[in-house]
């Protein structure tokens, strides 16, 4: 058997980010942190995609996580970054646990459409909630690390360091999960649910578990994004946000837990560079890349790495 290099690679990438961060320009730190936050959401979507499920409403949990973190600060002046992330994760996971009883019964296009509808419900609610700034949202308090607030020029780096640590831990945990019997069931659910049942496993339960984990990751990503950007608004729950996450998932592929973060980074770079060069055609570049990936690399960018390894 090929030795599992993923954990070591993850730790090395994490260490590299920490080492290079202090010397990198501020805007790259921001870009990287946002990519890590989105990568967490995509990590969850990747787990669902391995079962053949595409959620067009994952922005629901991203937004819930962000609002949970933002409201803790706004209402109770909580600013500890780990508390905020935990709150975002727990809120999303809880909502997903409840909704999962319904959604785990759906497949294919109907899973996508129902998750879309539910995310739009949250959007509709937030847009009309004046106490939370309606469609403008509100600013999130700067967060602290166990009560300590870094000096201004170190804020970006500190948030990145936390994000990198959290992302590495999450990726390691998901990697480990994908190796367990329940985690390995994903392609089986995609291929043939009848056989899954007749082997003595519950496809619905397996989907439910994955759905909750994916939501927890999205909530974590949302809380992280809220802290990084310093502002949240209902747009985080809108269908275009979900579309963006799916975009990254397809771009990255399901081959490895590293892929979502790589995909999110590439997405961020395309977005930034294309937007810089030509603000009116960056979506066109994104659309064309998505089309190209679907047609030429149906297993995503990660399959490029895989092929080289096999050769």
């Amino acid at each position: 058997m090929r030795p599992d290099r993923t954990p070591l690679t993850l730790l090395l990438i994490g260490a590299a980010i920490l080492a290079v961060g202090p010397f990198a320009p501020q805007w790259t730190l921001f870009l990287l942190t946002v990519a890590l936050a989105k990568g967490l959401v995509v990590l969850g979507l990747m787990m669902l995609l391995r079962c053949g499920l595409v959620s067009f409403g994952q922005a629901l949990y991203y937004c819930l996580g962000a609002y949970a973190a933002g409201m803790l600060g706004r209402l109770y002046e909580v600013s500890g970054v780990f508390t905020l992330m935990l709150a975002g994760m727990a809120t999303s996971a809880f909502v997903a646990f409840v909704l999962g009883f319904l959604l785990a019964r759906y497949r294919s296009i109907f899973f996508g459409l129902l998750s879309l509808a539910i995310s739009m419900i949250l959007y509709g609610l937030l847009v009309k909630t004046e106490a939370l700034g309606s469609s403008d949202g509100f600013n999130v308090l700067p967060s602290t690390l166990f009560g300590w607030r870094p000096a201004d020029e170190w804020v970006r780096y500190s948030v990145l360091a936390v994000a990198a640590g959290v992302a590495v831990i999450a990726a390691l945990a998901v990697h480990r999960y994908l190796g367990t019997p329940l985690g390995r069931l994903a392609p089986a659910i995609k291929d043939n649910e009848i056989r899954v049942e007749y082997m003595g496993a519950s496809a619905r339960q397996a989907v439910h578990v994955k759905y909750v984990i994916a939501a927890a990751l999205a909530g974590l990503g949302g809380a992280l994004a809220a802290t990084t950007v310093g502002h949240i608004d209902p747009e985080m729950a809108y269908w275009t946000t979900s579309g963006e996450f799916i975009f990254i998932t397809i771009l990255a592929g399901t081959g490895s837990v590293i892929a979502p973060f790589l995909g999110a980074l590439i997405f961020g770079i395309i977005q930034t560079v294309a937007f810089d060069i030509s603000p009116n055609t960056w979506q066109m570049v994104l659309g064309a890349s998505l089309l190209a990936v679907i047609v030429f690399l149906p297993r995503g960018l990660w399959s490029l790495f895989r092929r080289r390894k096999a050769a």
């Binding site: 595409v54 799916i246 009116n280 055609t281 979506q283 066109m284 994104l286 659309g287 064309a288 089309l291």
Partner: peptide, 12 residues
């Protein structure tokens, strides 16, 4: 997803 990609292209 393909029509979503086309939508992005048409937007611009």
């Amino acid at each position: 997803l393909i029509t979503y990609a086309l939508f992005l292209i048409l937007e611009d």
